[in-house]
Nucleic acid binder design. Structure first.
Length: 387
RNA sequence: GGGUCGGUGGCAGAGCGGUCAAUUGCAUCAGACUGUAAAUCUGACGACAUUAGUCUACGGCGGUUCAAAUCCGUCCCGGCCCA
């Protein structure tokens, strides 16, 4: 299986080999887990969010702390998402929450109601202040069900904003006297919804921006969502979009995804992934379990249908299944969640005990389940890396 | 012994003549979650039936009424107060 490419990236907080998965530590922490928990899962890089950290604890605090790494006391690679996704989904869901213009986005904090303004430049400045190792352009991610016309407009805005981001990025590099060795990597984001031609247009536009500004993007992200309204995996769009991105660049599949989505994306050329699924599903008592250990490598795995929702991955042919530990059938199940798993949960506790923790509503259950799922993802990525 | 308040579905607790198989919460049984406003959200929750619907139900029995969880009588049980 040597037809898969691996890339190595270096940051001031360590190097990474692709493919890798980043859990979402949106507000500077993975819910219920501390750094030691994360370390033991085998997970290294994580994603933090510009929008959330900007609102709370605010940049004043982060700067005083000496940057987000110091604040978190996590000295490994961190990527910050630009906040575009948050601001836009906030306003798309409720137009009263803010206003989008070509120049800027004005929005209200859902928590305090306070008004804030964010621009592409400001997003980049904040991300420099965070001190992250990888950053993402402030983009315009429209819901996939918007009209093609609207998505096309979002593509054009994303390109214009990417240019502003990259110019600001260069400014900050100069101002902060950063070198190629210690500068953060910067990612553009390819929008275009479910339209291949728009994805192509966006990728081309972004490449052109790099040429105009005089700096190549370190990577490109797949923007908006990679599944449609029904949760159907956008196979062709993802494949095509990956092919529009220069080979040497990193390909970051934002928000991807289920284990199956990741395994599908990787051979297409996607290198980096982040998703709330392992931790959120964990908190909700859903645990990932590998099936048929012997049937690997994963590349041999045939996906039966073009698309499936995660809940449907009870499919016997899948390489994993999901159990809902709260279900009454686990009340008296004294086996580990996954007898082949080496995580803290599976090494020490039974399904019956975890069932009890969830029924009791104790956070310990959520913590252990999150650890287990992240360990599942870490092992999955390791297998892909070794393919 | 006297007085008084009360007994409602697994629990708590609404309803106080018809629109009640009965609000709501908890519990229970499932489901959803994909760049985290998510320890969240949704559905089911008397029995039987695929739907229509049928039956049994608001402590027991007996009344009043076209109609009762709701009104009356009585009995049983519980809380509190006075002896």
């Amino acid at each position: 299986m040597n037809n898969f490419r691996h890339k190595k990236i270096n940051t001031k907080n360590g190097s990474l080999k692709t493919p890798f998965f980043m859990p979402d530590a949106t507000r500077g922490f993975v819910k219920f887990l501390n750094n030691e928990d994360i370390r033991k899962t085998g997970i290294v890089p994580m994603v933090v969010n510009t929008y959330h950290l900007f609102l709370q604890p605010t940049m004043e605090i982060i700067k005083k702390a000496g940057g987000v790494h110091k604040f978190m006391n996590y000295h490994k690679p961190l990527l910050s998402d630009s906040g575009g996704y948050q601001v836009f989904s906030l306003i798309h869901k409720n137009p009263k929450m803010g206003k989008i213009t070509d120049e800027e986005v004005i929005f209200r904090s859902p928590a305090s109601g306070e008004k804030h303004i964010i621009t592409p430049e400001k997003s980049i400045q904040i991300q420099f202040d965070l001190g992250v190792d990888m950053m993402v352009c402030f983009d315009d991610p429209p819901p996939n069900n918007y009209s093609k016309e609207k998505i096309s407009k979002a593509v054009e805005r994303t390109i214009r904003w990417a240019k502003r981001c990259l110019i600001e990025y260069n400014k900050q590099i100069k101002k902060r006297k950063l070198t190629d060795k210690n500068r953060p990597l910067i990612f553009a984001v390819v929008q275009g919804g479910e339209h291949v031609d728009l994805r192509k247009r966006c990728a081309d536009g972004l490449i052109e921006v790099g040429e105009e500004v005089g700096r190549d993007w370190d990577g490109y992200g797949f923007g908006a969502r990679h599944v449609d309204e029904k949760g159907v995996f956008l196979e062709e769009i993802l494949r095509a979009t990956a092919s529009f991105i220069p080979e040497k660049s990193l390909r970051f599949a934002l928000g991807v995804g289920t284990p199956e989505d990741i395994v599908r994306c990787y051979p297409m050329g996607w290198d980096m992934f982040d998703c709330v699924i392992p931790t959120r599903e964990g908190r909700h008592g859903r645990l990932f379990i590998r099936n048929k250990q012997s049937e690997f490598p994963i590349s041999n795995f045939q996906f039966p249908n073009k698309s499936k929702k995660i809940s449907k991955s009870k499919n016997k042919n899948s390489f994993y299944k999901i159990i809902t530990i709260r279900n009454s059938k686990f009340k008296k199940d004294f086996a580990p969640v996954d007898k082949n798993c080496d995580c803290e949960l599976c090494q020490n506790h039974t399904r019956a005990y975890l069932n009890h923790l969830f029924r009791s509503g104790d956070p310990l259950g959520m913590r252990l389940a999150s650890i287990h799922n992240l360990r599942f993802y870490a092992k999955l990525m390791k297998e892909l890396r070794e393919m």
